[in-house]
């Protein structure tokens, strides 16, 4: 087997391992970057799903935007404090974890919200 193919398989395996760890309660996270990546991608997924829902319902105005910001912060906060029960200080505090991927997820949310809202309710 070529080296590149081997690398690819190894990479896929490590992604599956990370997903499994992320969905298991109280996992150990010796690699800080791995956990921060989980938080990052979780935020992006939440952004896209919320954008889709907000556009379909549709939620509008400052309420829609505010609700997303609160939901995004609270869901992830609950995830790392209750579900994974990590020590926040190890990762530089709650703020450090809350801002991980926040801006990108906000942009993704806005794009999804605007596209679905425009497409479903205007022509």
């Amino acid at each position: 087997m070529s080296k590149i193919a081997e690398k690819k398989i190894h990479h896929q395996n490590s992604i599956w391992k990370t997903i499994k760890k992320a969905t298991t309660k109280n996992s150990e996270w010796p690699d800080k970057d791995e956990f921060l990546d989980v938080i990052y991608w979780a935020r992006q997924i939440i952004g896209l799903i919320a954008g889709l829902l907000w556009g379909l319902i549709p939620l509008k105005g400052l309420f829609g935007l505010g609700l997303f910001l609160v939901l995004n912060a609270v869901v992830l906060y609950a995830y790392f404090t209750n579900f994974q029960q990590i020590d926040e200080e190890e990762f530089g505090g709650t703020w450090e974890l809350t801002k991980e991927g926040f801006v990108t997820s906000l942009a993704g949310f806005l794009v999804m919200w605007i596209i679905i809202y425009s497409g479903m309710h205007f022509d």
Binding site: G55, L59, G61, I114
Partner: peptide
């Protein structure tokens, strides 16, 4: 910008 000049491409759900 020239292609989309003056065109409303989407409606924002907020002001």
């Amino acid at each position: 910008n020239n292609i989309f000049d003056g065109r409303v491409v989407a409606r924002l759900p907020f002001t």
